[in-house]
Nucleic acid binder design. Sequence first.
RNA 1: GCCCGGGUGGCGGAAUGGCAGACGCGGAGGUCUCAAAAACCUCUGUCCGAAAGGACGUGUGGGUUCGACUCCCACCCCGGGCACCA
Length: 842
Amino acid sequence: MSTPYDPHSVEEKWQAVWDAEGLYSVTEDASKPKKYILEMFPYPSGDIHMGHVRNYSIGDVVARYYTMRGFNVLHPIGWDAFGLPAENAAIKNATHPAKWTYANIDTQAASFRRMGFSYDWDRAVKSCDVDYYRWGQWIFLKFWERGLVERKKSPVNWCPSCKTVLANEQVLGDGVCWRCKSVVEKHDLEQWYFKITEYAQELLDDLDTLTGWPERVKTMQANWIGRSEGAEVEFDLCGVDGEPCGETITVFTTRPDTLFGCSFFLLAPEHPLVRELTDGTEHAEAVQAVVAAAARETAVERASGEAEKLGAFTGRYVINPVNGEKVPVWVSNYVLMEYGTGAVMAVPSGDERDFEFARKYGLPVPPVVLADDDPLLAELRDVKDRVMTDVVWDEAFAGDGVMVQSGAFTGLRGGKGSEGMHAVTEWLASEGKGRFSINFRLRDWLISRQRYWGNPIPAIHCPTCGLVPVPEDQLPVVLPMDVDVAKGETLADHPEFYETTCPTCGGAARRETDTMDTFTCSSWYYFRYTDARNGTAPFARENADYWMPVDQYIGGIEHAILHLLYSRFFTKVLADMGLTGAREPFTNLLTQGMVKKDGETMSKSKGNVVAPEDMIARYGADALRAFILFMAPPDKDLDWNQDGLEGMYRFLNRVWRYVTDVAEVAPSGSAIDEAAAKGLRRERHRVAGKVTADIERFGFNTALSAMMELLNAAGDYRRTVADDARDGALEREVAETLTLLIAPYAPHMAEELWREVLGHSRSVHREPWVSFDEALAAADEIEIVVQVNGKVRGKVTVAADADEETVRAAALAVPKVAEQIEGLNVRKVVVVPGKLVSVVAN
RNA sequence: GCCCGGGUGGCGGAAUGGCAGACGCGGAGGUCUCAAAAACCUCUGUCCGAAAGGACGUGUGGGUUCGACUCCCACCCCGGGCACCA
């Protein structure tokens, strides 16, 4: 009588043994090919949730699989441990963020151990440990040395609920904070930046090298970087007398070919020239009304694009460099100070927004680029001077077409990237009035945060020397623990921290009290794992070169821009510093879908949270792991369903019973049924091949299905073939195959079966992966489907290697088929070898 | 508005242009049992039919093809990203 499957005793037993054996500790070994398998490290928010279970189960299957394939696998874990929730919890529970954070880490680590994830715990990293964050400070200083750190005043995103500023990437599309979903405000503040824009072009170009990334993530990043090719054009500004005053205003445009159609000129409300041009004039009041209205617009309104276009004439003019025309300067809320130069040449016939504005304020709309099928073309073709100052269109034409009313450029092709655009730009350049230019949407990364629980920015404000970096030998700047966060204090409330002396002049100075964006911590942790205990450097290049880049990265799609863009930036800078040979951190990326409940995201406020610990308690970690992978392909969202988990538990029980039955009473058949054995053997090889291929393409659900099929076939064999006709050696082989195949999914059960039931001495997780033989997986007879006029009318079994003529003859001889085509004219017979025969008759 | 995904039984999902619905869940019936649970077996897309069998069927409408869930065109719905970026 075999012992029943008891997941809890099996799981606890092997977790202890694996720890004692150091099964998952890994060292650099030049003799073996490496694989670096990594899941995005978690924020220690408390108990683990189903999203964690899914993310880390995927990674664990991949890590265990490649280990069995003979790779030296690095599979580390750690915690992204700085961040705001710890401070909020501190205020709520009158505790310290550190205490809360470390307690949560312990809770999560225990859960991860109960899940049986194969982590090298010796390399675990907590970003709030001084041993880690000191190197973040060191990297900050190196960025500074390289001119990639800047402190500047500018309009920034302020989250009133988090009471800190945010980077552009951290404001969601609808103008809300990525963390708390509050509406973000614009404040004019002096802040610290990393100059990620210096890497904009490389960040864009190298997306093409990331062939192992989902297309949509690359598209999102490319859109975010937002490269535009065009020209800078200089307009001479006229004084109040209407004559050029010697000043110029530069604009960026993607359509220099439309310059002849510029009928007004726009400044952003925040543009510094606005006051200068209008203060004290009759236009000041109207202009200030527009400025004030723009300032009142919320981020949401502005982002929606639905804010009404407002404008006011400044009373001044600029000179269009291509034709010397005087163009009125207006102020409008639809011009953004942050993009380009904050000034725009308006061409209403070629730009939808300019068109709308021109119609509202009665400004001229001279056509300059006409579609090839535009009826106006007959009238205006080859017309160089402006004879038409308005159009009857109800929208602008922004496409490719023919340039008209455009002086010497008339007749050229106009449009984005057109010959006309190049010709106009070259002419401007030769006149010293413009140049080719590339603009990016990407902004520099605002990294300072007005919060306590983060990595202190290693800088000092000296009244005489200005901004001074903390000297390397004075690192780390330790985050003081005696700040009363529960009372809302930050470093700025802590004189013992900020009162210091200038490292340069020795005078009294103030230490920077902002901390770094936690995304800086997560931008290089994967390097730290390669050399986690290094006390003299963030990591040794030797270790980084052995392990990096990460071969398979797994995490949520919500980081498509945020973390993944920042990490790519960091890697490029670290490479330029000579610290690594990798210019991209993650070779292959898998973005897993969300785990929902009844179509909604699980959250405490909705009260629909399914606790993984409860599931482990009922069915064991193995069933939970296997089930969450079985539910859906990893990149799709899934809806949690408890009944299915029970089904997976049943499957594991059936595997357990099968393997124990076979191991305990392996029959030695005296009259083996060779045909039946052949069928089971074929299934064993087919399934081994399928499971292997499926893992490689992340088809964990179909891999598990295939294992179920093998078990079904093995069960049928055992039930339908008499004891003395069964092949005992084959059954044992099938039992071992199943155990090996399921090992990455249900590691504890597989280990118990392998070592205790099947009697092997070595861990199943150290065994080589299952081998399989395509020839044995192939059937020697195949069922061919016969279609008549596209409908299945019969089936016939033929030898697998039967030639086309044989198959054709067999197909036409099928009674049902013969009946169908009787009296008809067979016009065509398509024979698809190994599949079907299609007969066309009428 | 633009750019990506995605729409398949009661449910999760499976299908290199070749038998749609593998596998699992749920459901129905059965075996075992004093009974129940567990386990095992059979059936389970819809409609017509006693059955044999037939018709229909992968969001909608067209097209290509001997053959379309799969490829092409147009559209509808759902999810996500971007959005006054000059």
